[in-house]
Amino acid sequence: MFEYCTDPKLIEGFQWWSCYLSNGKHMSFYFSFLVVLSLLALTVPFILLFGFTGALARRSTFAPFRWFGTIYTSMVRGVPDIIFFLFVPIAMDQGIEVIRHKIKCSDWPEPIRQGNDFVVCTAAKMPLSSSAQWVHETYGFMLATIAFAIVFGAFAANTIHGALGAVPKGQLETGAAFGMSPGQIFRRIHLPQMWVYALPGLSNLWMILIKASPLLFLLGVEDIVYWARELGGSKTARFAYPHGDWRLGYFLFLLVFYLFLTWLSEKFFDRIMHKLSRGQNTAAGMS
């Protein structure tokens, strides 16, 4: 990055560090923080969508919807999230490939599962083996996002279901007495009042989501954990910047990053909670 970095063997001290910390791999490391943050930002709308769908399905008067909602919301209580993270991307990937296989290669004679192999025609591969590296990476990232959204959507559905039930009945009955339609009651009274009950659960969920984000590494995404291991591992003299095993240092840095992120979120949610509580029919809203 700097001019004096052309031969890192000759420099030392501050110059060495400034070159070391700004080399290409470190730039990828810094970029991977954006990957993690964008995963967090991207999943939130999906989590809320899945959460609302799950919660509304659970409240539905139509029994099959209700069963679906109940199963969806209770599955995360019994099964570790990591199993979903491993299962959902492979299952989705294979599902997509089977569908594409059925459409594009309908004349294919052999079955897809042959013993221990999973074979689809080349045209059905997702993404195509000829596509660029970034397509593969984006596809993997997308599958990871969906896996996160499904799992945390179920958590969110639990919270939202509870919050919808916590809105005082009198509030809704008043709406009905004014002659509002069920849709109006939901939009104008039920939904706005629900947030204050849902927020503690949702903020807690956000904390869990932040703390689950390093699991991206297990899904093969080049995230901060990947780069911390890559950069921290000891480098022999063959490398431009030889050093010993510095992984401990890199992981300490990640720890500080996460501590900062959770601390910041906590402050943020405290402020929102304070704002939302204003004028609400709760203890915090009275003052």
Partner: peptide, 22 residues
């Protein structure tokens, strides 16, 4: 309590493993 609750268990595993290796 702040450090444990504010950081991912996954990172704690890595960190403690590296520390024990050293």
């Amino acid at each position: 309590i702040f450090v444990i609750r504010g950081s991912p268990l996954f990172i704690q595993f890595f960190l403690i493993y590296e520390a024990f290796v050293l």
